[in-house]
Computed example of a mutant assay.
Amino acid sequence: MSTPKRAAVLGSPIAHSLSPVLHRAAYAELGLSDWSYDRFEVDEAGLPGFMAGLEGAWAGLSLTMPLKRAVIPLLDGVSDTAASVEAVNTVVFAEDGRKLGDNTDIPGMIAALRERGVDRVESAAVLGAGATASSALAALAQICAGPVTAYVRSAARAREMRGWGERLGVDVRIADWAEAPAALEAPLVVATTPAGTTDELAAEAPERPGTLFDVLYEPWPTALAAGWAARGGAVVGGLDLLVHQAVLQVEQMTGRKPAPLAAMRAAGERALAGGGA
């Protein structure tokens, strides 16, 4: 019998989150019958009060937008990975009471790509310049040997991406969003934009596409992912990322390795197919 523990995902909005499905599937597979994982609607204003009210049974938290940066001042320590992009998506409660922050999105991206045989690329393209794009750059810093071209819509976004590139040691080159069809010729294309943004590019998939990493998981497949796959290109999706980052969270929160990747992915696929949580 395991010691009862609690974990949860926080964010706003949060009702759509698949994290409870994935973590509960892991607990079931690991025999952690006394563990629970919930979701809480928490915004930046409510986060300090929520964190202050947590008691000893808590093992960890998953964080989504808009809390990944807001949580940092509330923690006792932050990993180098999380500090590199100023974003924490995982909080683990240590036995001594400390709250420790990490970022599993970055290693989750790398693991998802490696699962599809992508260990190293000579160059890459990133579509978009939001929070996920900075994590993508951090992942590319470890697997991309050459330049990364970021396709953005504004001068402000261009400055942000250049700044992240300098900080992460990535040779970031900027191109206007109007030139986005050219991005699809890269050996690795990472789409970090909201749903519908890349639909206009679906018909532009090259005859011999490389690998597309589209971070969305609903709706799936995106028009771009479907067009890419139709041309024979390899596609890594948002569910792949979600599962791999959740695997790392489960391992950190429970101390059990390896987390059950296959069971977690199957649970996510059922939920997206309408099988419920």
Rank of each mutant, 00 (worst) to 15 (best):
S12Q: 09
I14A: 02
L18H: 00
P20K: 00
P20M: 00
H23Q: 09
A25L: 06
A25E: 01
Y27P: 00
G31P: 02
W35Q: 00
D38L: 04
E44Y: 00
G46M: 12
A52Y: 04
G53C: 13
E55M: 10
A57Q: 15
A57D: 15
A57C: 13
T64F: 12
P66N: 06
V71Q: 11
V71K: 09
I72D: 11
I72N: 10
L74M: 14
V78S: 13
T81L: 13
E95M: 13
K99E: 03
L113M: 13
R114G: 14
S123Y: 03
A125G: 02
L127N: 02
A129F: 03
A129K: 02
A136Y: 02
L140F: 02
L140T: 01
A141P: 07
I143P: 01
C144G: 03
P147Y: 04
P147Q: 13
M161C: 06
W164A: 06
G165S: 01
G169E: 03
V170S: 04
I174L: 15
D176I: 03
P181K: 07
A183W: 06
A191R: 02
A195K: 02
G196A: 03
T197C: 04
T197P: 00
E200V: 14
L201H: 08
L201N: 08
L201F: 09
L201G: 09
E204H: 11
P206I: 10
P219V: 13
L224A: 11
L224H: 10
A226R: 14
A229K: 10
R231E: 13
G232N: 12
V236P: 03
L239K: 11
H244L: 00
Q245A: 08
V247Q: 03
V247H: 06
Q249M: 14
V250T: 14
M264H: 07
A266T: 07
A267P: 07
R270I: 05
G274R: 07
G276K: 08
